[in-house]
Design a protein around this nucleic acid. Structure first.
Lengths: 166, 166
DNA sequence: CAATACTTTCAGTATTTATTGAAAATTTGT
DNA sequence: ACAAATTTTCAATAAATACTGAAAGTATTG
């Protein structure tokens, strides 16, 4: 298979995978495009490569920047902005995790805590609050473990724990 | 807050959370409804509680069964089918993880392996295959750790590792 | 075996979500 | 300060996704 073909397939794969996980398909494709691109790309390059509008390219590029997955770079003697992706996939995974946690998990947890303040004397209140507590504990545990996973490379102690699991 | 209100809010919370993660909102709501319900519910009960059509109730209930998140139960002297949710949230999390892995992660991994077979002599092929390999290793590691997490309650050794992370 | 109770299907429709493209805003160079 | 280049916004539109409801299909009962 030719490299260009493989790039093309990867971009579509990443787009579909992203959309199954609640990430806008085009945003995932722009990300994939920049991941496989050797050089930084301008908005026009991206529009051209993915056949999307200027508005779409701009929107998705900016959204990817708020996720810290791509950076703005400037080319000497060119007025345009260029973009390049963070290429360290470990770092990519950390940033996606961090961002989803901040945007989605934390608000969810906040609501769960609030719902636990239901009238305790009603029949059924106990099993309901137990369930809320279980969800909290579960999310918290996943959170702790993913933190650890993310720190594994930077920390010999946690790294050795992770290696135990191989 | 009244228990009924809290149930109502939980159902909507779960629905919104689900849809942010690529799970059909109504399906997540049906799941939440059965999670908070003390008794098994019929299709009519669900239609009524969530104001959805018979078709929708049926579709979502069946989909939830393929995820092993709810069970069909029969009530003596009643011809209808009733449904109840798996209430152990740990088990729920295991099943969602297992199912998404089977449906989404495994096909993704298969494609990544395939794309690594790109022509190796083209310029840029090396960095591309390195990236694919990095994604594979990353997914694999997350997979191993989540397996471990899931087994933690059943296994003293892994359980003690998890407790280290608290 | 026919009537009844219940479940499933799916074409049509509604809703949600994403995209376009042109106008407005901003930035840069002279 | 102006003009040109570039970026951003957003109302209109398109595309994707989900839902409805009635008809067809199945199972159960007497």
């Amino acid at each position: 298979m030719k490299l260009k073909e493989a790039h093309y397939e990867f971009i579509h794969l990443w787009g579909n995978f992203g959309s199954q996980w609640g990430i806008n398909k085009t945003m995932a494709q722009v990300h994939a495009l920049l991941l496989v691109s050797e050089d930084a790309m301008s908005t026009d390059d991206i529009m051209d490569a993915l056949s999307i509008s200027r508005g779409g390219a701009n929107m998705n590029v900016r959204e990817l920047m708020t996720w810290n997955l791509i950076y703005k770079v400037s080319k000497l003697g060119d007025r345009k902005e260029f973009f390049e992706a963070e290429k360290d996939m470990w770092e990519v995974s950390k940033r996606i995790t961090r961002e989803r946690k901040r945007r989605e998990i934390e608000p969810l947890m906040h609501h769960l805590v609030r719902l636990k303040r239901v009238d305790k004397n009603e029949k059924g209140a106990e099993s309901f609050t137990k369930m809320l507590g279980d969800i909290e504990r579960l999310v918290d545990r996943v959170d702790k473990v993913s933190d650890t996973l993310m720190r594994a490379e930077e920390n010999a102690f946690f790294g050795s724990i992770i290696r135990l699991l191989k």
